[in-house]
Nucleic acid binder design. Structure first.
Length: 265
DNA sequence: AGCCAGGGAGTCG
DNA sequence: CGACTCCATGGC
């Protein structure tokens, strides 16, 4: 597992690097330090309490430890174009993040860059989330945001996205949008339902499906991905990615985003 | 100063 | 449908 690439390849905005191979993350109401140790990761709670069984189950889901990435990567390497992307991003895993915070994070991501998205998410937690330590706050529940007005979100400096955040919170809090309902629907239908939220278009919906609901066939297409796909896979994802196109996408995205020279096309 | 950032809504044709 | 503008903020 490549912890750093996994945490900073644009699928999550709730981690910070605190020292070499050590990262601080807040997910839901859990704050942990994660360390890369060889090929493995070591997780410690910031309150120095031992991980409970519930914690372990949670992080197992979060890091998708049930998925065999070794064989998945080997499968991807059967394609000559996909192979260098996989080798470049060896050990990247697609996370399975909590639904509501993934939804809000990617609503905030539109026409925005990663460091600033992380900043807004951090202020959102600090302002409205449950206190974990003096300086660390968890992610607020939909109900805690649903009753707010746009002016209340001013300190976040989220700009025009503030009203989108509130619409999402209201629709989730009211049950109009339900994670279980989304899970019961096929990709296309789930996507449509998500897009009834103001501020959720195809790209944001796909990010939620892939990064929160584990829909591994879904491929979110931003400018970088479109560019990379046009250059590498004009006929679509290679057959060896069948069923896991979204995971293949993550390797391609990470590769494309770091190839600054591609900007000249 | 101007451009861009893991887009989407609103409008016009 | 497609194209086009605006959206609010901050970093470079």
């Amino acid at each position: 597992m490549n912890v750093e690439a996994t945490l900073f390849c644009g699928q999550s905005f709730s981690w910070t690097k605190i020292q070499e191979e050590t990262y601080l993350g807040v997910v839901g109401d859990r704050a942990v330090q994660v360390r890369q140790k060889g090929d493995n990761l070591v997780i410690e709670r910031v309150d120095d309490q031992p991980l409970t069984q519930e914690d372990e189950a949670f992080w197992r889901v979060y890091f998708a430890l049930d998925i065999d990435y070794i064989s998945l990567q080997n499968k991807f390497k059967n394609d000559d174009k996909l192979k260098p992307c996989v080798e470049f991003g060896q050990g990247i895993r697609v996370l399975r993040q909590p639904f509501f915070e993934t939804l809000l994070s990617f609503i905030l991501s539109q026409n925005n860059h990663i460091p600033r998205i992380a900043g807004i998410v951090e202020r959102l937690r600090a302002q409205f989330g449950p206190r974990i330590t003096d300086t660390i706050y968890g992610f607020p529940k939909p109900e805690q945001l649903a009753c707010l007005e746009v002016e209340d979100l001013a300190p976040l400096r989220a700009g025009f996205r503030a009203r989108y955040v509130l619409d999402a919170a209201k629709k989730v809090a009211s049950g109009e949008i339900e994670e279980e309902k989304l899970s019961s629907l096929p990709d296309g239908e789930a996507r449509k339902l998500l897009m009834t939220i103001c501020g959720v278009g195809p790209k944001v919906a796909d990010c939620v499906l892939l990064y929160a609901l584990g829909r591994y066939r879904v491929v979110p297409m931003d400018v970088w991905m479109k560019r990379a796909m046009a250059q590498l896979f004009p006929n679509g994802m290679p057959p060896c990615a069948e069923g896991y196109e979204g995971i293949a996408q993550q390797f391609i995205f990470h590769w494309a985003r770091t190839q600054k020279t591609m900007k000249n096309h």
